[in-house]
Simulated assay, not measured.
Amino acid sequence: MGIFSRMTDIINSNINALLDQAEDPQKMIRLIIQEMEDTLVEVRSSSARVLADRKTAARKLERVQAEAESWENKARLAISKGREDLARAALQEKYAIEDEIAAIETELKAADDHITQLNDEIAQLQQKLTDARAKQKALTMRSRTVESRIKVKRQMHREQLDEAFNRFEHFERRMDNLESQLESMDLGRDVSPDLAAEIDSLEEDERVNGELERLKSELGQRPNQE
């Protein structure tokens, strides 16, 4: 009963609903397919046993039917010989066998119904298995497509980022060029000396003045010596 109950649950299950609830649809559908395949193997094995039991019951039915016919023939013979007592006994044996025949026929009918049910369920399970495999193939293709699109998107984003950096570098180079042009315009122009340059100039003037006084002094002394 466990096999048939599980198989019925799979047959009646909505694969799309199961996939919607699954965190990993591909893993989920692989599990569903594996469960279906395992169940299908078990059901086929059970079907084989039912078929074997039916063949055994059919052979038994043929045997007891032949036995019942034999007792009827014996009853006919006894009547022809005037032995009604023997005919009655033979018919009683026949009736006992006919009860067994009825039981075997009931068993065969149940086996036929069981086999029909198994055939229907196997056919449904096989169809579900085919659908699940098709769904697996479709999911695989969708997964590959999504992965490819993600890869392209990432590549596009990298290219856009590279392009942005290139534009930024181009802008930096342009600013460098403009600043260089501005600086080049000041080349050769007199520029006011800074504080250190002014102080150096004063020191230089002082030295020059000192030298000048010294020279004047020397020149002023020479005429007096003569």
Rank of each mutant, 00 (worst) to 15 (best):
A123Y: 05
Q126S: 06
E204S: 12
M36T: 00
K27F: 06
E72S: 08
E72F: 00
P25F: 01
Q26H: 07
D176R: 15
D9P: 06
Q65G: 06
R173E: 14
T145F: 07
E204T: 13
A110P: 01
E213W: 01
E72G: 11
D194I: 03
E84C: 08
K109Q: 11
I10K: 03
D20E: 10
I3S: 04
R63I: 04
N16R: 15
D186P: 11
V152M: 07
Q155D: 04
N166E: 07
S180F: 04
L19Q: 07
Q160E: 10
K216S: 00
R30P: 03
A164V: 01
D186F: 09
E206S: 14
L187I: 05
A78P: 03
A110Q: 12
H157G: 00
A138R: 09
T130M: 05
A102W: 00
K74A: 03
F165A: 04
I10N: 00
E93T: 09
L195H: 04
Q225I: 13
K137S: 14
E35Y: 00
R158D: 01
G210H: 12
L139G: 12
E100D: 05
D113G: 02
L161F: 11
L219Q: 14
E23Q: 15
E42C: 08
A78I: 09
E35P: 02
D85Q: 02
A110H: 13
L195T: 10
E147H: 06
I122Y: 14
E69W: 03
F4V: 09
E218M: 13
M185G: 02
R158P: 00
Q117A: 12
D186V: 09
L195R: 06
D120R: 07
H157K: 08
V191F: 10
D85W: 03
N14A: 00
E163W: 01
M141Q: 15
D24A: 09
Q124W: 09
E226N: 01
I79M: 03
N16T: 12
D99T: 13
Q21V: 05
L195K: 06
L161T: 02
P193K: 10
R88F: 15
E204A: 15
L91E: 05
D112P: 08
A78M: 11
N119W: 10
A138W: 09
R59S: 07
I15G: 03
W71A: 00
V41H: 08
E211S: 11
S184H: 12
E226M: 01
E100L: 06
R144E: 09
D205C: 04
G220H: 11
P193W: 10
L161K: 06
S201G: 03
S5V: 00
R173D: 13
Q92E: 08
E107C: 04
V152T: 01
